[in-house]
Design a protein around this nucleic acid. Sequence first.
RNA 1: GGCGCAUUCGUCUAGCGGUUAGGACGCCGGCCUCUCACGCCGGUAACACGGGUUCGAGUCCCGUAUGCGCUACCA
Length: 489
Amino acid sequence: MSVRVRFAPSPTGYLHIGGLRTALYNYLFAKNQGGKFILRIEDTDRSRFVENAMEGLIEILNWAGILFDEGPGVGGDYGPYIQSERLEIYKKHANLLLEKGNAYYAFDTSEELEAMRKKLQEKGLNPKYDRKTMKNQFTLSETEVKQRLNSDEPYVVRLLVPDNYKVHFNDIIRGDITVDSSEIDDQVLLKSDGYPTYHLANVVDDYLMKITHVIRGEEWLPSTPKHILLYEAFGWDLPKFAHLPLLLNKDRSKLSKRQGDVAVEDYRQKGYFKEAIINFVALLGWNPTGDREIYDFQELIDSFKLEKVNKGGAVFDIEKLNWMNFQYLMKKDTKELAIQFKTILIGKGYPEFSNDYLEKVIKVHRERVTFLHQILDFCPYMFQKPEKFDKEYFEKYWKDYSLAILKELLIKYSKIDNFVHDDLHKATLETASERGLKLKDIIHPLRLVITGRSAGAGMFETMEILGKNECLSRIQYFIDNYEKNTLVF
RNA sequence: GGCGCAUUCGUCUAGCGGUUAGGACGCCGGCCUCUCACGCCGGUAACACGGGUUCGAGUCCCGUAUGCGCUACCA
């Protein structure tokens, strides 16, 4: 039987970074097994429905490269893939359970349920539905039940959990788990608004969509026994289960909005590469060997093993993500980066530079930043003439002979036809030794003149990229303003 | 409260009965150097605790502690 897995988000907002990892693990597993990855939208809670959330989810999944084989928009043989379009299917299955005696009608109001729970809790008991005292098929007469059903009176369908029964299942990640049925609540299956709850819809759809492996977050582990009971009631074979460890905040609570960004979109906006995010998130809770960090998408697919997924939760450490982003910044093709960077520059109102120029700038500056867009902050002087000069740097390295040297260099540089690193280096070194100075005695003032700053890439490679005209013009500008005492610091 | 799941350096992890407990991020130091970085070299730091089982336990079993999750007509 070929592997089929699904990612089943609820369209209640943006895609959470934890959701991304769940989707990713499903995807990696499917592709590793030569199976299918399905997207199913679980929009059975009308009160939490967010307009366009589904579109956002799909968009960001596509961006990340987690492409689904079946789902909204792409179709498939087991649709529809949006649960609100499958209401009749759930109703039919709820009726099936009703007929088989595995489910029953209940008529309690939310106030009555609340009062019941409060009472049980005060007694220190498990606050689960008390079938024997509440308003339902078992406590009401047959005629009253019929009457209520025929009237407009709201009702729900609940799962009849058998007494004295041990529910067993095996989790690929956690092993055998057994729960006593006395711990399991008579879960509502069909809500009074006619929509199914997660539990019913999920089980029915997983079965009908021929899902072979249910890979989901650990928060679902406690309700899995309910699902097992449902499969058994229907007489269906169980899929395999794998419950993933949670992603955690620094304080080890479940990853949440309060302590930093959780939306994948936020990270995209900040300039993280999708490759870095995927690589990083994949390694939170799973590692093929433990002695390697960088894996491309295909390598992740090839080495993915559900059995190797960890049991314990993993803290989301932004420092390591940053490091990983840097790794990809260094690794990526500069042609691709130049195109991205051009968009960034234009967005900030800069004129259009040639791809060739941008590539050169990126090549020498990327090792100094974490994000591509930071190159602009690091060396704005590569895109416009410096107008302000670092005062501290000036005071530290500007000597009484510096102006004379600058004038000499201006002449010397103007005679260099091939304005490249080696020739610039040679010419400057010459000037230095003629005056009994060290190269750095000249380079520092020169850096100030050319860039206005103390930090930057190698001086001569910077000058080579800027070009002869630009460099000469900057030196001239500095000399003029220095002599007129109009330099701005 | 009840039930469940978990627990190796600060963080992500390797380990699947015998290891000087390995790698990575971060941090610290050094080298390189025209600055800032990159890079390279080195250092820091962990098996939650207590009992078993065993010749031998981070690895297996049982407790305890701690953390997290669930306990809805939310997913």
